[in-house]
Amino acid sequence: MVIDVKHLSKSFDYYKKELGLKNSLKNLFHREKLSKEAVNDISFQIEAGEMVGFLGPNGAGKTTTLKMLSGILHPTRGQAKVLGYVPWERKKAFKMQFAIVMGQKNQLWWDLPANESLFLNKCIYEIDDRDYQANLAELTELLDIKDLLNVQVRRLSLGERMKMELVAALIHKPRLIFLDEPTIGLDILSQKKIREFFKYYNQQRKATVVLTSHYMQDVEDLCKRAIIINQGHIVYDGDLHGVNELFAHSKIIKLQLSSPVSQDTLAAFGRVKEHSDFAATLEVPRIELKERSKAILDQLPVVDFNIEDIPVEEGIALLYQRREAAHALA
């Protein structure tokens, strides 16, 4: 087992500030201290070689969890073992075996070519020359940035810089990789390239990868297993496509129409999710799928007809809502 987390919690102190100048002045003298549970009693395990997606809305506690697992933050309560070490003890042997890539933080020296920073990492991780050269050649080949090694980092595009960051993070062949929003702000092509890279890397090196992302596509492409976290709690842990089974009582029907049909007419066949002159998307109960489909084909001017599952994204959004609703009731 690579990661074993038991009842991990982290709370942050912060100050309340109400709107307006008067409150700003009041805040100068007296601040009401509040505490926020960023991560609340989570437990999970990750096996070697797994690729796990950490999903959740902004502020759900994903990044805080990764920071605790990489030893950047101390937890308020609970235990964790990563690669057999307690991460926040920050042992050297532990640090030599993992990497964390934070899409919004860079480790490369801004004013110097990336190969200088990479060489610094070679020294920091005590990699010998031959390993370093071989690994550098492989990574830069895979990410297609061989020609950019001698360009100052500040002259690279965002996508190129992110790829260099990945090379810097992986140059010591970590067994465990934490990726925190690795594709944030990148265009679709770069995102795709980076996803392919991690897929290959995970297969080749058998490295364990834990990924957080806002982009559903990242997680759908890479991870079989998803841990979904909301307001500091784990709301789902399992097969990513299993999320839909929680919502399996509904199906989606997509229609192309030859002539416009009013929304009211469509509503007779199911809940209208989208509607334009010549297209419509309906949600229907699974048990009535057959009858409704038949009725639609008989009564509407249908050109094309498709039955689909609820998209994973929507499933997850529903999960969040369910959790929040439960919270509101409690």
Partner: peptide, 13 residues
């Protein structure tokens, strides 16, 4: 301030 100190904490240095 910007949290870049984190990238140093995770390195063996």
């Amino acid at each position: 301030k910007n949290g870049r100190f984190s990238t140093f904490l995770v390195k063996p240095q």
